[in-house]
């Protein structure tokens, strides 16, 4: 479990995160949603330790992460996997080398063991046979899948996904969502997904934290997302024409239940 308490973060005097507290549960897909520029990425990077917070505390389990120094954080980071918006694969390495990279850096495993683990992870994301390709030769969906393989190669306890579906078509997005969901359930990982894609929220979201202008506006389960009494959240959730249409149909009794039941 990851717990944030009263997180504040500013850049050049501009406050980007204002007093955010939230709890992210293990074995669940915890989603941070909000409009572009609302502070989602900054929040996930603060939680991951890529940005130092100006105020507040972040706990990984019972460990106060924000009080640890660089070396102490390293130990926790071995348990963290992250999928970045653009994949962030190392351009100079092949797919296989990218996935094997954390094993090379932090384990004393033999080459055969590492190769076996890499093959397993690539198979897990349906990319067996792509090991010799370079990142420049991959499609957007493949890049994200390699990023997932690299993120899980060390058996992480925490998985952070920063807009994992950005730039992908709806079908590929679903594939990525399903992978993240399955991996989270399979290994009981604490997964935090940062997105503004409502399809993803409907597809795999379980616990939702809604951020607006750097403040936490709403927190709850995805089952309550569409019936929440929060104007900013409703504006966000029902921004698309499709959402409006479905809501109108739901209000008129043409479809029953909430959107989450449509999954």
């Amino acid at each position: 479990m990851i717990r944030c308490e009263h997180i504040c973060k500013s850049f050049d005097g501009k406050q980007v995160l204002k007093d955010i507290s939230a709890e992210f549960l293990p074995g669940e897909i915890n989603m941070i949603i909000g409009r572009s520029g609302s502070g989602k990425t900054v929040l996930i990077k603060c939680i991951a330790g890529l940005f130092n917070v100006d105020g507040g505390e972040i706990y990984y389990g019972d460990t106060l992460f924000t009080s640890l120094d660089f070396k102490q954080r390293k130990a926790i980071r071995r348990d963290v996997g992250m999928i970045f918006q653009g994949g962030a694969l190392l351009d100079s390495l092949t797919v296989e080398d990218n996935v094997r990279f954390p094993l090379d850096m932090f384990t004393e495993q033999s080459m055969a063991e590492k190769r076996e683990r890499v093959e397993f992870c690539l198979r897990r994301v349906n990319l067996d046979g792509a090991g010799k390709l370079y990142p420049a030769e991959l499609s957007g969906g493949m890049t994200k899948r390699v990023a997932i393989a690299r993120a899980i190669v060390m058996n992480p306890r925490y998985l952070f996904c920063d807009e994992p579906n950005s730039g992908l078509d709806p079908v590929t997005s679903n594939v990525i969502d399903r992978l993240i969901y399955d991996i989270t359930k399979e290994y009981g990982i604490t997964t935090i997904v940062n997105t503004h894609d409502m399809n993803s929220v409907m597809e795999i979201g379980e616990k939702i934290v809604f951020i607006n202008n750097g403040c936490k506006e709403w927190e709850g389960s995805s089952a309550n997302l569409f019936t929440a009494d929060n104007e900013a959240l409703n504006d966000f959730v029902f921004a698309s024409s499709m959402a409006k249409t479905v809501k109108a149909a739901s209000d008129n009794g043409h479809i029953s239940g909430n959107w989450n039941n449509m999954r």
């Binding site: 330790g49 980071r77 970045f84 962030a88 694969l89 190392l90 954390p102 850096m105 932090f106 952070f160």
Partner: peptide, 17 residues
């Protein structure tokens, strides 16, 4: 610089490198 703006350096940091 390209590694920085494409978050490859962040990826290394996250791994603890």
């Amino acid at each position: 610089g390209t590694m920085r703006i494409t978050e490859q350096i962040d990826a290394l940091e996250i791994m603890g490198v």
